[in-house]
Nucleic acid binder design. Structure first.
Lengths: 224, 224
DNA sequence: AGCAAAGGCTACCCATGAGTAGGTAAGCGG
DNA sequence: CCGCTTACCTACTCATGGGTAGCCTTTGCT
């Protein structure tokens, strides 16, 4: 069969369901991250995905379902990216350092994932906000555990636990905010971002201006 | 004229325009803060305001106009609240301390204002996001100036300015995040919140766990 | 009194966009 | 070559909600 390239521009071959679902989710994340849940239209998502609207409904369900599945996939990605970078047998500051680096690497690589998780998911009242808040809460608790561990390890007693949750919330917020800032400054590497934050929260300004600097142990200076 | 209280339950007296506008803006802020821009309906706003829908349109214009005016009013309130609490002739750490306290006092008192500014305003693409981002940027620059001033005052050179913007962004984010956290913990006073943050960013964990504590000068211990 | 202006409302229009009905075509076992 | 399933689409329905037309009512001025 020579020369049968008659089909116009190879338009929309039939693809297996799994592939289509991936494409649709990709498109959904992109569109949701740009416009938010309410302003995003299923028509635009189907358009970006290169698929007609009914496909979305037969494969992924309603708009809310779709949003939920988008959130879930991106959240899993983020958590896995961070866990992959952390070694639990290191001292607290090194754990924090590695976690932060993985986090900033992820944000740089999957900006849309980050946007949809950080900004958009909270704006849909109901289940999603609760889910995201819960996930963020777990992150805060994790950091709080680190902080308290660092505190008790050094002999600080009840006082650290008392303010641990608040400090952890502040720290997580600082990390998130710096992530947003970094979106506008792509030239700053994830290592530098993590270092800034470590210097801020581990040493504080007072030490910083005295010339003290926090360093991730004298190992290799790998900039990814 | 004795005894003419016949009008059913004193329903909706005629009020001057300025008062109605205030009521409508109050309702708008409340509804927008709860549901976000898109999910909020003009019908609900008019209902909460105790006014019919056309009034909103004749007094304050379209939904977008209304949202813009809400944002603007709340932003002005926030800025004025903070500026009222800061004295420019104090050392940097004390300025930061007073600014933070005013900020947390404001957030506690006007939760809805804070929510609408922090969460909702960004979700409406277009002019508002830009405005809010710009305002936040000014806040960050202000803090950055403080930080750099603290740095150069203590003899730290170029290095501080280099990371000043990033650190300021992180600090502002930490303050915001702690504000969100504080919404769920109303028993924590603004003074305590501000202290936590000062300890975190000014001293850092390392000093904290050594027992050092930052204090706002040995003046009166006023808890508002 | 009379009348204009300001305050206020009910009842509607209509664009947008979520969700669907029902059909076409491509692969595949027989 | 026949039918069955899977992939896929066009073209609709219909609720929601932004925005408005037109009307009534109170107040205040002459």
């Amino acid at each position: 069969m020579p020369d049968e390239d008659q089909r116009p521009p190879e338009r929309a071959r039939r693809l297996p369901r799994a592939v289509r679902e991936r494409q649709i989710l990709d498109a959904a994340v992109r569109v949701f991250s740009r416009h938010g849940y309410h302003a995003a239209s299923m028509d635009e998502i189907s358009d970006v995905a290169g698929v007609s609207k009914p496909m979305i409904y037969t494969y992924l369900g309603s708009k809310e379902d779709l949003f939920g599945k988008s959130i879930q996939r991106e959240a899993t990605r983020l958590l896995e990216a961070i866990q992959a970078g952390v070694q639990p047998d290191l001292p607290p500051d090194m754990q924090l350092w590695h976690g932060l680096r993985s986090f900033y690497r992820f944000v740089a690589e999957y900006r849309e994932s980050w946007t949809v998780l950080h900004r958009q998911a909270l704006t849909v009242g109901g289940t999603f906000a609760a889910e995201i808040t819960a996930m963020r809460g777990r992150a805060i608790e994790l950091v709080a555990a680190l902080v308290v561990s660092a505190g008790t390890r050094k002999g600080l007693g009840e006082q650290a636990e008392f303010s641990g949750a608040g400090l952890a919330a502040a720290l997580v917020g600082a990390a998130e905010s710096l992530a947003d800032w970094a979106l506008d400054h792509p030239e700053i590497s994830d290592g530098v971002l993590a270092s800034w934050l470590m210097n801020l929260v581990w040493l504080g300004f007072n030490d910083l201006v005295e010339g003290e600097v926090w360093k991730p142990l004298p190992e290799m200076n790998s900039e990814s």
